[in-house]
Design a protein around this nucleic acid. Sequence first.
DNA 1: AGCGACAATTGGACTAGACAAATTGTATCG
DNA 2: CGATACAATTTGTCTAGTCCAATTGTCGCT
Lengths: 242, 242
Amino acid sequence: MSTLVGDAARREPKYYAVKRHLLDIIESLPPGSLVPTERELTVRLGTSRTTVRQALSELVGEGRLVRRQGSGTFVAEPKLSWPLQVSSFTAQATAHGFVPSTRLLESKKVRADEPVAGLLHLAPGAWIYRLERLRLVNDAPMAVETSHLSAERFPGLNTRLRGASSLYAVLTEHYGVVPASAEQTIETAAASPREAELLDTDTGAPMLVLARHSFDANGEPLEWVRSFYRGDRYKFLARLTV
Amino acid sequence: MSTLVGDAARREPKYYAVKRHLLDIIESLPPGSLVPTERELTVRLGTSRTTVRQALSELVGEGRLVRRQGSGTFVAEPKLSWPLQVSSFTAQATAHGFVPSTRLLESKKVRADEPVAGLLHLAPGAWIYRLERLRLVNDAPMAVETSHLSAERFPGLNTRLRGASSLYAVLTEHYGVVPASAEQTIETAAASPREAELLDTDTGAPMLVLARHSFDANGEPLEWVRSFYRGDRYKFLARLTV
DNA sequence: AGCGACAATTGGACTAGACAAATTGTATCG
DNA sequence: CGATACAATTTGTCTAGTCCAATTGTCGCT
């Protein structure tokens, strides 16, 4: 019954004491500094390497430390704030002084599975384009983006996109379609081996997942996009006016 | 040089095979179902309990599983989408059919440290009110919210808030202040022991951290709030119009 | 029938160690 | 001097186990 009260004296895990010790070290050093090795921390703090690594992993996931195999563990740079706007990736990056680039990983015509078909108001099995793109900022991989669009509504999108800078530009110029509204969700997840490899991080690393469902002026769904951002490097920034 | 290319054949960690196996099980069962015990999975998959627990922990962090000591591990309910709006917590909850409640954890007059003072345009050491509140939805703890406001600008806020339903209502009625704009950041973090206890989860559990910096019509900062949401239970939902 | 003690079972925390893979400095050789 | 080979050091992955804490079912007693 008293789940809300909670165990007032839940004891602090041992790894968390290690984490606090490491936070003290981190806050006293500039980014790029070397922190003690795992094995040195085990003897200094009288614990096992497993426990030390648990504390280190959490700090790496929070973007406070960076580990390099064979080299050591270092204090990380602060997170970069990524402005969330309706404009295109390239536009919003340059507007904030970043140097954006994109690598097209895949662009295929496939059949929609149940959830995607529903989101795009199509029958399951309908043909769709599936675009996978790697977004980079200042040459550092930031996010993996997978877009889904109806192939019937946008014939030849595949080839029209080659060489084009922006998907939204192609939609407007060739199909006369302009996104009018969107619904976005933001959640956390752990990186799959594939995402980890593309983003140059570890499997299981914490990610920010942004899913955007955009509609045209008639309220018909245009595209559905899911983007995986490195949670240790980036945070989202939104400006609101009442 | 070729950091972008990446090791095409980075091998999948063993724990991830366990995770995929568990995902198969999860997708074939309704929420609330019992999944095999850790010790059974170790023998069935020919691995160690540590490796099994790593896969389980990731799935718990992603909100796919729930563990109960002494009882077992169960398939979790899907995440709840929490609409992000400028309106107050209570208003936005009831508008979407939820039953909100708030527990005041702390309300103290303290001195502002360097970062908070800067955000509120105050001198370091200036008096501020620090409010800590636990937000609940349908009687389940959702977020821990810590607000900071200038004590000089809002004298007696402390007592005026007792019994009042909404902070924003008090600001408007007693001080004639209306928030006009805000800047929000969203990032990931790991739960501290205190946050974990209040939100009835585990230390180190993945969290969504929302920081809101709101301003009045003159562009002067009004308050700075940091909220920790359980990342395994909730995701943020935003509606955008171009 | 109901209560209480107990034992079995489950997840939680931690340890100690083995071996692999990446990096870096050093010694050696041409 | 420069390139190569090697060894030491560092983090990465995984194992096997101990002990603790919470839950649940069972058995026995009243």
